[in-house]
Design a protein around this nucleic acid. Structure first.
Lengths: 246, 246
DNA sequence: CTCAATTTGTTCGTATGTATG
DNA sequence: ACATACATACGAACAAATTGA
């Protein structure tokens, strides 16, 4: 085994939190099965090269999350039915994406009728004359899972303002007649939550996020839809059919 | 402005680390430009609602990373040329993916001629008779960026064992004659690094990772290639053309 | 049933890190 | 830089519950 102590120090996260995140992963991956008794504190202490109290703190943390339960004299056990993770599937094709966002009812936070144009990189088309900005939060089961900062070409927005505010803009785009989408491109990266985002997604500041930069072009190569979408990183799955036979 | 103090407490990461991660994001996103003078400690202290020393600690952390520099009496400045991030683009179509991995020279850590079959979920095809396991690390510029845990159908592996060990297995798959790939599916999630992975990728334990579960089926629906690939989450971009007109 | 071994829970002392004013 | 308070981390010891011989 390699040098664990050096690994702990590569991060400034408290050790018991690091240990807890390893435990959590083991439970969620199924390496530790529901109801199973895990190793004793002493064994774990040796395995993770930390003090017993530190293991205890990690166990304590996961007990609060409902993933572990410790019983004095008998041992520590994985919960019989650990809280199931609610996965949210991100789609990687236009049709599937539009279909999946139809169910969304965004909470609109802010609408600016006159907004500065979005920053477009090479290959992201030409800017429209004017843009409208729409900020919104997407929920599922009352839990926020993404924050959307959208620039929409005003010309497009004006075709049906209410529709764009009431429903997911992508679905609205698809529904509008006489509009031809000729290119749609998504760029995904992993970032960390700013204070505003952390507040809106109910996650910690600096917690990992999945950031999507989504650009849609019309038949003239004009960027009519430019969104920066930030998802909470737990509970997000991206499914990609590499051969595109849907 | 919302309640920052509650947001800090949602995470057990030290405050100055949280503040530092916000600063880092501002620099990397370009909101704070190279060479620019940032706000004074007093202003930042008010904005972030933390003590002065806490801001100082965050600045200190980023100074060590070469992103900030503080000069007594004059202020704190963004580095003139912050260390550029090396982006690694993940492709979302078979052809682009195969093309992109051709340049990879994996460091093979371990090869097992007889390995247990991979765990296949619904829609991931049928298992082959026998599998070979290959563990490897992918580097770029001497920096490890991913760890691959691969199960390869033995029948396929035996067609050219050296090729599979020497080059990226996906490219090798594509190169082998008489093999028809009929489906290839990728499932991406965001996870956290186990001690082993942390050690191999030179990141902190529990640091966010991008996990790819990649399954390739042959003409009989047999899962001939099943890989679990773990990437460091910084420096990864996923490009998706939603309309597939490449 | 009793006893001893096992296992978690709790506390003490100490040192260092974090956070505030 | 200082004073203060609390969190983290370690090692060690002891208490309390459980188990099985």
């Amino acid at each position: 085994m390699s040098n664990l102590l050096a690994a702990y120090d590569r991060s400034r996260v408290p050790r018991y939190v690091q240990v807890a995140s390893v435990f959590r992963q083991k439970i969620q991956s199924g390496e530790w099965k529901p109801g199973q008794k895990i190793a004793t504190l002493e064994q774990l202490q040796r395995e993770f090269q930390v003090a017993r109290v530190t293991i205890r703190q990690a166990v304590e943390l996961l007990s609060q999350e409902g993933l572990l339960g410790a019983r004095r004299g008998s041992g520590t056990f994985v919960a019989a039915s650990p809280p199931a993770r609610q996965w949210l599937t991100l789609e990687a094709t236009w049709d599937a994406l539009v279909e999946s966002v139809k169910a969304n009812k965004p909470k609109v936070i802010n609408v600016k009728r006159q907004a500065p144009p979005p920053v477009l990189k090479a290959g992201e088309g030409h800017p429209a004359d004017r843009y409208v900005a729409i900020e919104s939060i997407q929920d599922r089961d009352g839990q926020p899972f993404s924050v959307v900062d959208l620039r929409l070409a005003k010309r497009v927005f004006d075709k049906d303002p209410k529709l764009f505010v009431r429903s997911a803009a992508l679905a609205a785009l698809d529904a509008i007649k006489g509009l031809r989408v000729t290119a749609a491109h998504q760029r995904l990266t992993i970032g960390s939550a700013s204070p505003e985002i952390a507040d809106r997604l109910k996650i910690g500041i600096g917690a990992p996020t999945l950031e999507s930069h989504l650009v849609v072009l019309d038949q003239h190569g004009i960027a009519i839809y430019v969104a920066d979408i930030i998802y909470r990183s737990d509970s997000i799955v991206l499914q990609i059919d590499l051969l595109n036979r849907s």
